[in-house]
Every structure is written in C-alpha cells, then in structure tokens.
Design a protein around this nucleic acid. Structure first.
Lengths: 227, 227
DNA sequence: CGGGCGCGTCAGAGTTCCGTCAAGGACGGG
DNA sequence: CCCGTCCTTGACGGAACTCTGACGCGCCCG
C-alpha cells in the first residue's frame, strides 16, 4: 500500500486530505510542523510527501533540504504563495511538484499519482526484481529471501538493511548512508547498530558467517554487497 | 548535455522556449505536430519533452500515450486549458507535470530542471563512470578498484588519495593540495604521509611499483595520475 | 668529491574499527 | 498477565589502519 505523509498546519486542509486519501486506500501519516515531518519521514518512510510551505516552526524549503539530505522520496509542495520565485526556490531545493492553494482535489490526487508512479521501480512490465547469488535469492518486490529453497525469516530492520545493500549491488555503501537510510537521518554515527545487524544478516544468509562472501566489510568506509 | 524536445504549434512559443533553453545550454529539438514529435522522440531520445496539448494533427493525450508505450522520458505538459479534467487526464496518461498558459518562464525552467533531476540515475543500474588504464580500472561511484579482474582492497586513506589524483587525471596535483584534501586543511607540510601512501598505492596497483607508469612523481612539486 | 635534500621503503607502536556475545527493555499477541 | 520477538546498548578481544621514525638511494649543488 502506498504511504503518504501530509504536512500542513491548517487542520481543515489536513482533514480534507486525509479523508480523500484514505478513501482511495492510501495509508496516511500527518504532521503539523517541520520537525514532526522530518521525524515521521524518517520513522515511517512514506512513498510520497505532501508538504505545505507555510509551517509554524521552520521554513518549508528547509524541510525539503532536510529530506533531500538522505532520501529521494517524491515531494509535492502545497503553498498559498503564487510568486514565481517561491516556486523556483522550492523546486530547485528538491521538490518534485508545486501546487498553489486553493487547489482542486482531483488535480492534486492526479499529481500525486504521477509522482508515485514515476518513483516506481524503473524497468516496469516484467516480473519481480530478483537478485541471485550462489546461495540465496532476494526478491525485492515480494520482500522475500530464499535459501536452499526455503524462506528465510528476516526482521524488518534486517530486511531494510539488506534492501539498501542489494539495491546498491556491487557498490560500496558508506556506513553513514546505511544508518541514515535504515534508521533515519539522525542516526549517522551509531555504527554499533550496523555491526549487530550485519552480523545477523550474515548468520542468516552466509554459508560461513565469519568469512562472508557476499556482505563485505570495507574497514573505515562501509559495506558492500556482492553477488 | 541535456536534450529537450519542444512540441507546440504556435511558432512564437516555440521560439521563446528554444531561445531560453539554448541560452542555458540545453540542446533543443522542436516539433509542431504530434506525428513529428513522436518521430523526433524516437530518433533523438530527448532527456525531457515539453508538450503542448493543442496540436493540429492529434490529441495531445495521444502523444503522451504514444511516448509512454516505449519510454519513461519525463513529459512536461503545456496547455491553455485550465480545467481539472484535462489535467487529470494528461497526468494519468503518463505526463509528469502540467503547466497552464500563460506560464512564467522561470517557473517552467525550474519544473524542467526538477523533471530532469529526478530522472537521473537513481542509484541503481550499472551506469557508473569508470576510469580505465591498461592494468586496472577505477569506479569512482562504487568505490571499487579492479586489477586483472580481481577487486583490489584499499584503505580509506589510500582510496581518498587515489580519488583526488584520478579526479585530476593528467594534471599535476601539488603536495600541499593533496595533503589538505586527504588529511585536512591543517596538514600542509607532512609530506612523509604522501610518500608512505603513494608507495602503498603503487604497490597495489602498479605492475612494477618502483618504476611507476601511472602514479608519477614530480620532484619538489607533487604527483600526477596518468592513464 | 662530499654533503644536503627529496623521495622510496620498511617495520613497529598506537589507535581506531569491527565481530561477537549477552543482557535489558519495548511492544504486541495469545 | 505471560511469553516471544525485536530493537537497543554495553563490553571485550582481535583485526585493520594510521602514524612515526629510521635507513638507503639518487640527484643537485657546492
């Protein structure tokens, strides 16, 4: 199910959006200020963010930057300001779309669909995205891992970590990036989490967990997944 | 360079767009009807399409569908019609954005930048920039070095040093600059660090480390990386 | 011819970083 | 209310990395 984060300080707008979105079977989180928005985005990993620029605690553009520091989630800006400069600033800060109030609900929903659609896995059409190694297979779409024909049980955090690594297959992923993508932007330094969960993953997926073939440590830099 | 396909039947609008885009160093193709647009898109593979819905030969939405049949190129719709239904139809047909005429050029360009930006290689795919020599290859994005088909292990400092040299491929990099970029601004004189780590790099990457072909010392000045 | 300088090489000391284990706490389901 | 699962946190031994000093070599210049 698609998860939407709605950020606006006007309760009636939030209410209208939440009702309309839930009616279309979106999952909705709501925040009424920028700090909450950033926290919720980190905790819930929405598929799209609807963001009002006029927030009580911080500039909307700062929220955009805060998000763009660690995620490419689509951001649909909502604003009462029509000036061209405002739009340009928001878009260049990393927003995906800009709608001025008052807005038509139909149009907003269509723009939201467009934003979600284009964020979907690129090579659409064919079957699921499956990454294979000698010893196990990862199905990114189905969120399933198989080893020797049997499903492997992963906890949410383990899966999330695996997902980031597999999506960057072959590339080195910095520990800061890993931490921020899995645990959220404020967890840039808790490298002990990484150590614990990498060990879990290796125990569940590697033949010889103490001599990993696929989850490779690059000391001082990060980790790398290799087929 | 980014290539833009402009589709509109009003010459003055096309002219205004072409001038503005070329001034910002975009490469521009123009079409004045739907059939030409589809043909040009196939022939030239633009990075983004700016499409007016009101075309003489076919419905703009049909053009969108025609493009979406085989490409995910961003489509930015331009239209004189303000009705919500029109927007929804175009967006659901596969358009990425919808701007109503008359439009502000600044805003249009910002939306265009946003569309191009998010189409950029996410982090998936293979398309990394790779620097090659006879004996080894350096993948800057993946932080990966291969030699004779096998991965070479580099420590953070070694990698950092290599990165600076490769990014300045062919140019001389002063020792002060190297030291400051790798070890920090306060390390302008510790040239012994350089000696040690250059030796490591050569040992790992050069065929004959004592007679380097790629990591060349310029006595008294600095070092140079040569393919 | 000899001394100074810059560079390459080597090996050891010290520090940082990583894997592992285990215990405690939060949360949800039965 | 209890129990199981999952996340967090701390501690520790060992491995990897960085730093540092010593030495030899070639080159330039006195």
């Amino acid at each position: 199910m698609t998860r939407v984060l709605v950020v606006d300080d006007e309760p009636q707008i939030v209410r209208a959006l939440v009702i309309n979105l839930k009616a279309r079977t979106y999952e909705v989180d709501a925040a009424h200020d920028g700090a909450t928005a950033l926290r919720l985005a980190a905790a819930r990993h929405p598929d799209v963010v609807v963001l009002d620029l006029g927030l009580p605690d911080m500039d909307g553009v700062e929220v955009i930057r805060g998000l763009r520091g660690w995620t490419r989630v689509p951001i649909l800006v909502l604003s009462a300001r029509h000036s061209s400069d405002e739009k340009v600033e928001a878009l260049d800060a990393g927003a995906d779309d800009y709608v001025t109030k008052p807005f038509g609900m139909d149009e907003l929903l269509a723009r939201l669909r467009a934003a979600v659609r284009r964020a979907e896995p690129a090579a659409g059409g064919e079957g699921d995205v499956i990454v294979e190694t000698d010893e196990f297979t990862v199905d990114l779409a189905a969120k399933k891992v198989q080893r020797a024909g049997k499903d492997v049980r992963l906890t949410p955090t383990e899966w999330h970590l695996l997902e980031v690594l597999v999506r960057n297959s072959g590339r080195l992923v910095g520990q800061k990036q890993l931490l921020q993508e899995v645990w959220g932007p404020s967890y840039g330094t808790e490298t002990n989490y990484l150590r614990v969960y990498m060990a879990q993953l290796r125990r569940k997926l590697e033949v010889d967990p103490s001599h990993p073939k696929h989850f490779i440590t690059e000391p001082g830099m990060g980790y790398r997944f290799e087929k």
